[in-house]
Design a binder for these strands. Structure first.
Lengths: 370, 370
DNA sequence: CAAAAATCAGGAAACGCTTTCTAAAAAGGC
DNA sequence: GCCTTTTTAGAAAGCGTTTCCTGATTTTTG
């Protein structure tokens, strides 16, 4: 493995790597030619290019990313900010995002905010310091001020749901209304009227949007929601547990509960088990997200699917658009993400109603969108 | 926001950043002094340093990481390879690892192998290309050849369980035997003799180690294991489901099942629900890992805790030792990770036995290590 | 066939930083 | 007070790339 010998090598623990010079020497060309050949610039003589590639092969040359980034001003790293990496929805998203990014020659830098503004800010700072080419923010709670600065620098940013109201930000608009309306109508069709809702933390716009979609869907049906039937959770199992216990303590129980995400629903299932209410016989539970795990809950969770595949695809595409556009202003700025109900076994007819078994069986086998 | 004007700025879309030159000019010192001040080299006059810091403040200067990495040969990035980011154990690990790494001034580059050797290799390649300072491999299935090359270059590597048998690799030795022995003894104390085991994929050393620990613990008690009681899973819910269905189809059922990880146990719980065996009344289930989720299963899972906090701490410490050591050979090479049983509600007396209620209640309230 | 145009390889500058080397100033010794 | 030693700031040499510019060679054109 050859190594530039004409240059000093004073760095304390630099690893012996093969540089563009070694390749150039071996192929008997200049480093400029090696660079052009490696980057497949068309103006290089095919004969020479072949010699260069042979030398690359023989030396095991790998271009140094840092040097490339330094000279080109592009790191080829995408930032991905999620709220909680330990919420199973996000690893699924991360995986999709990463696959797509890598396929496009990008690396991904991940960070979770844990709903902590200070952590969020330091995360942003670290990403900028590492010179990421753009950031996808899959959470909310970023300081408007920080975002404004970035927007001014024409830094590519993608938000989910609703970014701050600034120009030139790309937004993935999740159609919560669609899936939640399906969920409410599904429950109503089964005969439910007393439906509760456990929201996420309401300072998150996405949590607010889900709750509003629920309220609207109920209003659409002309069903009233007692105020004590809307409880704030935290988008965690613990939050779902606490909220459900609160609901279970009410004198007049609901017959169904819709949750703002699947983790909340899992917590709710647990609370109902503790308070010995059987699901779905006594109370139906519906989640949101359709994390992989939800099929494996007992009972398997009826939930609204938000495809993290399409979310990730839209995020990567939107970022690339922002990074590679000559005139960033000119490109499309909103990307729609659909959501749909997936019926499983945590929802059924309200307690006390006894429809013909055949109907019930049919309901259970309702086609599941995939 | 000042900007070097004496230098050309031909890069197509370079963002206007403030460089060390701008700070130097503003503080009326050389760039060398700025560099030294920023890096807190003691030989710089406090008066000058103050001037430099003031200029840094005023210009909003942030050192360029790429340039630093280029000149120092250190990227200050740690690689973290896990087998499956969607297995909830790993996000917990990732989070701990990241917190520690960031506290030490490192960034983390994460990748999951998904048990695919090709993906693993490309992941390694990408990490090397990005010049990570070291890699923690929290999975198995890396090609020995690749690892050998890295070891030769004195590239810091940390493996969990057992790396390839090469010198100068740091290994986190998880004491599976300890926790699994506790699990088996717990079941035996309850009266179980017919205990099955669902392993992970057996080409993974860590899965093999867990299975062996189970076999050994059983032998220790003088209890025989029918061969059909040891089934190979995949460390996923699907694998646990399939394996448990296979076990449930046996003419002679076990009274308890130990699983190689919690995801497998969750799948097993699900299979038992499907085949209408109640847990723990008819069959006890024990998991491994103690992921956060396991407390929220129905019933809450008795499981062996492997602290991902200590795992992450050991991994970061081991990597730092490898990176910062003058003579990497001289340092400690093995780090022990303990495991312990956490008793919850998925395990109880075998069906048919009817111990005094008072005993059962006592068993339930057995102290849980935290 | 000579001059102009087109092609394409190599030299060298630049990216933003760290670190060595150099030299000036300050401090110390006789 | 002069010479030696110690500080400490600045100049400059890289780190490994990309890319602009120059100039040599080949091709086209009048």
């Amino acid at each position: 493995m050859p190594m530039s010998k004409t240059r000093r090598n004073v760095q304390n623990r630099r690893r012996a790597t093969v540089s563009i010079r070694d390749v150039a020497r071996r192929a008997r060309v200049s480093i400029a030619t090696v660079s052009r050949a490696v980057n497949r610039v068309s103006s290089v003589d095919p004969e020479l290019a072949k010699r260069v590639w042979k030398a690359v092969e023989e030396t095991g040359y790998v271009p140094n990313t840092q040097a490339r980034a330094l000279v080109s001003g592009r790191s080829r790293i995408l930032g991905l900010i999620v709220s909680e990496i330990t919420n199973p929805f996000f690893p699924e998203l991360v995986q999709e995002f990463e696959n797509l990014a890598v396929a496009q020659g990008y690396e991904v830098m991940i960070g979770s905010t844990n709903y902590d503004p200070a952590k969020t800010e330091s995360l942003f700072r670290r990403m900028l310091q590492r010179n990421v080419d753009g950031v996808a923010v899959m959470t909310f709670g970023v300081e408007e001020e920080l975002v404004r600065k970035l927007v001014e620098r024409e830094f590519p940013l993608v938000f989910v749901d609703a970014g701050p109201d600034l120009p030139n930000i790309r937004v993935l608009k999740v159609n919560y209304a669609e899936g939640i309306r399906e969920a409410v109508q599904h429950l109503a069709a089964l005969g439910h009227r007393r439906i509760a809702f456990i929201s996420g933390p309401l300072y998150m716009r996405s949590a607010l949007a889900r709750r509003d979609a629920f309220v609207k869907s109920m209003a659409e049906l002309g069903v009233e929601i007692p105020p004590e039937f809307v409880v704030e959770g935290t988008h965690t199992m613990e939050g779902g547990l606490a909220a459900m216990e609160q609901i279970a303590a009410l004198p007049d129980l609901p017959t169904a509960v819709v949750c703002s995400n699947d983790m909340t629903a899992i917590g709710a299932l647990h609370a109902l088990e503790r308070t010995t209410h059987s699901v779905p016989k006594e109370i139906s539970v519906v989640g949101f997200d359709d994390i992989h795990l939800s099929q494996f809950m007992l009972p398997p969770l009826t939930t609204v699917r938000m495809s993290c595949k399409s979310l990730a695809a839209a995020a990567v595409e939107a970022l690339r658009a922002g990074i590679e556009a000559e005139h960033p202003k000119a490109t499309v700025k909103e990307w729609a993400i659909p959501t749909h109900l997936v019926v499983r076994q945590s929802s059924t007819y309200p307690r006390g109603t006894l429809p013909a078994m055949v109907n019930q069986a049919a309901e259970r086998r309702k086609p599941v969108s995939v």
